[in-house]
Design a protein around this nucleic acid. Sequence first.
DNA 1: TTAATCATGTAACACGTTACATGATTGC
DNA 2: GCAATCATGTAACGTGTTACATGATTAA
Lengths: 184, 184
Amino acid sequence: MSLRHGLLGLLNYGSMTGYELDKTFKDSLSFFWQAKTSQIYRELDSMEGRGWLSSKRVIQHEKPNKRLYTITDSGKEELKSWLSTPGSDIAGATRARSSFLMRVFFFGELSTKQSLEILQLYREKCIEASKGMGVAYDSISKYDEIIADDEKSKYWYITALYGDTFLQASLSWVDKAIAILKER
Amino acid sequence: MSLRHGLLGLLNYGSMTGYELDKTFKDSLSFFWQAKTSQIYRELDSMEGRGWLSSKRVIQHEKPNKRLYTITDSGKEELKSWLSTPGSDIAGATRARSSFLMRVFFFGELSTKQSLEILQLYREKCIEASKGMGVAYDSISKYDEIIADDEKSKYWYITALYGDTFLQASLSWVDKAIAILKER
DNA sequence: TTAATCATGTAACACGTTACATGATTGC
DNA sequence: GCAATCATGTAACGTGTTACATGATTAA
């Protein structure tokens, strides 16, 4: 499973509360992996049960109390071992799980006009997302300043680069698709 | 949900057994959506419960008996309505859910040598998958001969084109990533 | 004064994965 | 003789999603 290890990776940068993890996850990893707040809390609980994390209740007076999670040695081991054995997900990475593309496969049931409308909507979303990549790079710079570690931020940059490449490819595909539907 | 509608789409081309659906799904849609055999049988059951399908037991003597599924009018309606309302999945399509990329994000914890090895493995998988696209196009031609409908096969071709575009982009990204790690 | 932020969770349900079970026929 | 293909499923478990619940502080 991945959410587990994503959280482990983030906690390896420093202790955080569930709330902070949720936001950090959404800031940094949500392009590749989405998770709901409720799932994150449940997962933290189960990770603590496995001994990968320890937690401390922090009493606050002006704000609600919070629970601060810290990665344990056993958690660090698990993270390293997960990172160094990229089992099946390397194969899965050469496929693009997408319910949208599955729809497109069946667009023969719609009119060309309707299909075109949907593809054009997708095109706009791609352009929007592409513009939004700036925020991702900003986010990387921000965390880079806090953590200040070139070895780490280099990879953050590489993943952001993937986002760019992916969105450009998506755009170039949808333009080809629209052209095919318009020809003749 | 998507598996449901994928199966509905396939059954709209003609009646099939669970076994045939499983193979057809894996032949045609598995680049975008993966499903286990057991899940397909369970789903067919639940779809019949909703009245989207009807089924008939076919008694065979030389082979095991089978159950033939046929889409109902209500199922056809559901398919059309799903196709024409591309709700949230159009937004999701501009993100690339990938546990592999999440790993890469944390590669700072590994040595550059190890990271390079994993990226090179990924590179090979991309090339392999890229070569495998030929099979996908063959599969399209095969079904195109059976179904003989340009309106339909046009979209099959467009989705295969996505596969190609995606794999080329993945390759181009990993080459950039490897270059970054090798520089200096 | 209304919405957003801070901060945590529970419960129920939906979907995906793994393991197991059966047994005949056909091709290498 | 052994593996693959045909053909169907059940049970248990793991993961993801939706809905609900609470309540103070701060910025527009």
